[in-house]
């Protein structure tokens, strides 16, 4: 005899629930397969010599990001403590004023003011047969020329960011900043950036116009932009915020010449 359900009892799964569960299971199946496939691809990739290098570069990049965050926090704490240091009020004010001026000159201070924002990225054109791919991507020389034209046009503070550093602070250009290439990536202050590159500069009225007509810009970059359709946009803005430099400011091989030594 088949047992009968009590009159008020409900089945464990209603039809619409069954549909939901089926859909969820299908999604799990799809994602699981995708995950598995990407794991396999990654596994094969990591087994190659290049995969090992990619992993190492990723580790170093993550470590760099952590170090930059920690250093920024420590610098902020140090600055706050210095501003509260014990001493006579007048002496303290004088010392803090000198410190602030030195930080501004060194590029260690976050700055704001009117300026320009420039963006440049690789060409979207497909590379014609027989031509070099390098012509169609943003090169180290392009960034160096843009930066040269900005400084020579009166910029007072410049920072560069790229898509690889999304969420990370821009690289402030200081006296020790190298702009160098590593394949498709460009390193600024040792931080790898990739296009689109965004250059922010603070400077007086007319900075944008002077930049666009400066020989360092029209000499090479502008011609490459026109010839290879590199993506480029620039505009004058009322307010740009350029972060302070986060990095090493201590000398290992040299030392400041003190006034009393001169």
């Amino acid at each position: 005899m088949t047992p009968r359900l009590p009159a008020r009892a409900r089945p464990l799964f209603r039809p619409q629930w069954a549909v939901s569960i089926a859909l969820a299971l299908a999604a799990i199946g799809f994602l699981g397969t995708a995950q598995w496939n990407s794991s396999l691809t990654r596994g094969e990739f990591i087994s190659s010599a290049q995969g090992v290098l990619v992993n190492r570069a990723e580790q170093l990049r993550a470590e760099q990001s952590r170090l930059l965050d920690e250093l920024e926090g420590a610098e902020t704490q140090l600055q706050a403590l210095q501003e509260l240091a014990l001493g006579s009020e007048a002496e303290l004010d004088r010392e803090n004023e000198r410190l602030r001026a030195a930080r501004v000159a060194a590029g260690a201070q976050e700055m704001g003011g009117p300026g320009v924002v420039i963006e440049i990225a690789d060409s979207l054109r497909s590379v014609p047969v027989g031509e070099s791919r390098n012509d169609y991507i943003v090169l180290v020389s392009d960034l160096r020329d843009i930066v040269t034209a900005l400084w020579a046009s009166g910029a007072e503070a410049i920072a560069i960011s790229g898509s690889l550093t999304e969420g990370a602070p821009s690289a402030r250009l200081v006296s020790t900043t190298p702009i160098v290439g590593a394949g498709a990536a460009i390193l600024v202050n040792g931080v790898p950036l990739s296009p689109p590159y965004r250059i922010q500069a603070i400077g007086p009225d007319g900075l944008h116009d002077r930049f666009l007509t400066h020989p360092a810009f029209i000499g090479r970059v502008e011609r490459r932009i026109d010839a290879f359709d590199l993506q480029f946009a620039s505009q004058a803005v009322d307010e740009v915020i350029v972060p302070g430099f986060v990095g090493n400011t201590r000398m290992q091989w040299g030392a400041p010449v003190r006034e009393e030594d001169r």
Partner: peptide
């Protein structure tokens, strides 16, 4: 820090190797 940042930025002379 005034001395350090001044040297780093170029406001003071630097000696060394």
């Amino acid at each position: 820090d005034v001395i350090r940042f001044s040297a780093f930025g170029g406001l003071t002379a630097v000696e060394g190797q």
